[in-house]
Simulated scan of single mutants.
Amino acid sequence: MRHTATSSMREVNDDVLKERMQQNEKWGLQRHDYPYWRAILVEEVGEVAQAIQHGSVASKETDADDLYTELIHVAAVASAIAEQVKEEAQ
């Protein structure tokens, strides 16, 4: 069975690519040891958790509030790690 990409899939992936390009503009091409990548990724996942709890009794003023943006950041960091894995396998 053949599946086609939905407009939401395309939009999300376009946003991830835009974020990856912004990361490269801001930080340059990043290549790290995997424990360092883990720290970066977990920090981003923490911001997703904050955004999810935003507005609940557990939220605080410092919590992230834009769930979509935080999810894009997680996907972009994961993408950067995958790029490194792929390059190292070559």
Rank of each mutant, 00 (worst) to 15 (best):
G28A: 09
G28W: 10
G28E: 07
L29G: 08
L29A: 14
L29Y: 14
L29H: 15
Q30R: 14
Q30P: 04
Q30S: 13
Q30A: 12
R31E: 15
R31T: 15
H32M: 15
H32C: 11
H32Y: 15
D33G: 04
D33N: 07
Y34E: 14
Y34V: 12
P35M: 02
P35W: 05
P35Q: 03
Y36F: 13
Y36H: 13
Y36C: 09
W37Q: 09
W37M: 10
W37T: 06
W37K: 09
R38I: 11
I40S: 08
L41R: 09
L41K: 04
L41A: 11
L41W: 06
V42P: 00
V42H: 07
E43R: 14
E43A: 14
E43F: 09
E44T: 03
E44Q: 13
E44W: 00
G46D: 11
E47C: 03
E47M: 04
E47Q: 12
E47R: 13
E47L: 04
V48I: 08
V48C: 10
A49M: 13
A49H: 09
Q50Y: 00
Q50N: 01
Q50S: 03
Q50M: 07
A51Y: 05
A51W: 04
I52K: 07
I52P: 00
Q53L: 06
Q53Y: 02
Q53G: 00
H54P: 00
H54Y: 13
H54N: 08
H54A: 13
G55H: 02
S56D: 02
S56R: 02
S56M: 03
S56E: 02
S56G: 09
S56W: 03
S56K: 02
S59A: 14
K60I: 08
K60R: 12
E61I: 01
E61D: 11
T62N: 04
T62L: 02
D63S: 02
D63Q: 01
D63Y: 09
A64G: 01
A64Q: 11
D65P: 00
D66A: 05
D66R: 08
Y68N: 10
Y68I: 05
Y68H: 15
T69G: 10
T69H: 12
E70I: 01
E70C: 11
L71C: 15
L71I: 14
L71N: 12
L71T: 13
